[in-house]
């Protein structure tokens, strides 16, 4: 497979950081700044059954990224997430409940290079420049 512009980094992000309230922490801006993709968690106002079905799909997709060595983190929290991840054999990844945007950017920037970015070992590639281009 040819290498494209992907970052091999996927953040499971609570809805309140994807659609932040006024003055809230903007998870999209932080992800864009640091080159992370976002896997959005269901909004808190969904009925339990709706959220559960959406979380099951989130977990299945997270599993595929994990199997291939992409880095996974959690931004915020979501009831039912740990159970959904457990259904596919995943633990809740390292995470942050960011008090502010700077802490979120620091957290995302400080993660080690994902294994998927180095298919033949750390010397094989410098990895993607995740801060160079948002698009």
């Amino acid at each position: 497979m040819e290498r494209d512009d992907r970052s091999f980094r996927v953040a499971l992000v609570a809805d309140g950081y994807v659609n932040p309230p006024p003055g809230g922490v903007d998870g999209i801006a932080a992800a864009a700044e640091t080159g992370w993709g976002v896997l959005q968690l269901p909004a808190e106002d969904y009925p339990a059954g709706v959220a559960q079905r959406l979380l099951a799909e989130v977990a299945e997709q997270a599993e595929e990224f994990w199997r291939h060595g992409y880095d996974l983190v959690l931004v915020g929290q979501r009831d039912g997430l740990s159970e959904a991840l457990a259904q596919v054999g995943l633990a809740v990844p390292a995470g942050i409940v960011p008090p502010g945007p700077a802490e979120l950017v620091d957290f995302l920037s400080s993660r080690p290079n994902p294994a998927a970015a180095f298919p033949a070992g750390p010397e094989s590639s410098p990895g993607p420049d995740v801060t160079a281009d948002r698009r």
Binding site: M1, D5, S7, R9, G37, Q40, R135
Partner: peptide, 19 residues
Amino acid sequence: LNQNSKVGDGAHCAGIYAP
């Protein structure tokens, strides 16, 4: 929101498709 999900050689950027 996540170009990492694209088919190989299909990601146009690191993660968020800003346009």
